[in-house]
């Protein structure tokens, strides 16, 4: 099928098998290899991308369903020379080891901080209506859809906290 996908602000024309997931379209057809495949079943979060600002598992959705959507991948957040604040914080806090879950963690954290800013509660929020606080428990809970077998969790939370606090101060 012929489709146009908008990825990181750029339109890409693609001829795809209708069975192609967003994940495989990115990795196999556009050489956007930053989005990783850990399970292909929505169980690990390695494939997390942002669609219209919301984080999703790109292995669980077909490319043909996303014409007209704005897809953001890890490559759209920053480059090695110009890292986004979260990318830089992950490096500084060693929020990864093998790096395979990392793009998904960072895309997920990017979307998650927006969700918190918008006041979405989580399973560990005491008050569903109050603005969520930036506790370790809130961040851990909201990041639990992203597995890290290297188990950098402690450092991932530290990296996200640093960025979130800096941003709150700036507001």
């Amino acid at each position: 099928m012929h489709i146009t996908l908008s990825i990181n602000g750029k339109d890409h024309e693609l001829d795809l098998d209708p069975r192609t997931s967003v994940l495989d379209a990115l990795r196999d057809h556009l050489d956007l290899i930053g989005t990783k495949k850990g399970c292909d079943h929505g169980q690990c979060g390695a494939c997390t991308v942002l669609v219209n600002g919301r984080r999703i598992n790109s292995c669980l959705t077909l490319a043909v369903m996303h014409e007209g959507d704005a897809i953001t991948t890890i490559e759209g957040l920053g480059t090695p020379e110009a890292l986004s604040p979260l990318q830089a914080a992950f490096v500084a806090h060693d929020g990864f080891q093998c790096g395979y879950c990392t793009p998904g963690q960072i895309c997920s954290a990017t979307g998650m901080l927006e969700e918190m800013r918008a006041g979405w509660p989580s399973h560990v929020s005491e008050d569903l209506l109050a603005a969520p606080d930036l506790s370790d428990a809130e961040i851990s809970e909201r990041m639990s859809g992203n597995l890290c077998r290297c188990s950098a969790y402690t450092n991932i939370v530290a990296a996200i906290t640093e960025v979130a606090e800096a941003r709150d101060e700036a507001v």
Binding site: R27, L32, G34, P80, E81, V91, F96, G99, P103
Partner: peptide
Amino acid sequence: VDRVEGPLKVSGTARYSAEYK
């Protein structure tokens, strides 16, 4: 010291084995 390959990993530009074209 920060991981020297860190910027590649966090930006999704480190190429793992299934990713060669």
